[in-house]
Lab assay of single mutants.
Amino acid sequence: AMEMGLACVVCRQMMVASGNQLVECQECHNLYHRDCHKPQVTDKEANDPRLVWYCARCT
């Protein structure tokens, strides 16, 4: 999947907007926009540098 680069696995886009940054699952290393992931990634989750985030598939 490395050839995908830094794109969201849901929408396949790399564009990021304020409040909709890409977050990386620490287990599978897929990237998700906060708005694309279900459930939506919260501000607290996205902005906490100590948080280890896992996508819905890996939790």
Rank of each mutant, 00 (worst) to 15 (best):
K44I: 13
Y32R: 03
G5C: 06
N47F: 05
M15Y: 11
H29L: 03
N47I: 07
E3R: 03
Q40T: 13
C36V: 01
Q13E: 08
R34L: 14
C28A: 02
E3L: 03
D48H: 08
L22I: 10
G5E: 14
H29F: 05
C55E: 01
N20Q: 15
V52R: 10
E24Q: 08
T59F: 03
E45C: 07
L31P: 05
A1R: 09
M14W: 05
M4W: 02
R50Y: 08
D43G: 09
R12A: 08
M15C: 13
H29V: 02
D43M: 09
A17F: 04
C36G: 02
H33W: 00
C25N: 01
R12I: 01
V9D: 04
R57I: 07
D43T: 08
A1Q: 14
C58W: 00
M4Q: 09
N30W: 08
M2V: 09
H33T: 00
Q26W: 07
C36H: 02
M15V: 12
V16P: 12
G19N: 11
N30K: 14
G19W: 03
V23N: 04
H29E: 05
D48N: 06
H33K: 02
D48S: 07
E45L: 10
P49T: 13
M14T: 13
H33D: 02
R34H: 08
C11H: 01
L51A: 14
C11S: 00
L6Y: 09
L22V: 12
Y54M: 10
Q21V: 09
C36A: 01
N47A: 05
K38P: 03
A56E: 08
K38Y: 06
A56Y: 06
M14C: 12
D43L: 07
G5N: 14
V52E: 10
S18A: 13
L22D: 03
C8W: 00
V16E: 13
S18N: 13
E45S: 09
A17M: 09
Q13F: 02
R57G: 14
D35L: 14
M14F: 09
R50G: 13
N47Q: 08
M2F: 09
R34A: 09
C58I: 00
W53E: 07
M4D: 09
E45N: 08
Y32V: 05
R12D: 14
C11W: 00
C8L: 00
R57M: 06
R57C: 08
N20T: 11
V9Q: 14
P39I: 05
C11T: 00
Q21M: 15
K44E: 14
G5V: 06
V23E: 03
A1V: 14
A7R: 10
C58T: 00
G5Y: 03
C28D: 02
H37M: 13
C8E: 00
H33Y: 01
L31G: 10
R34D: 03
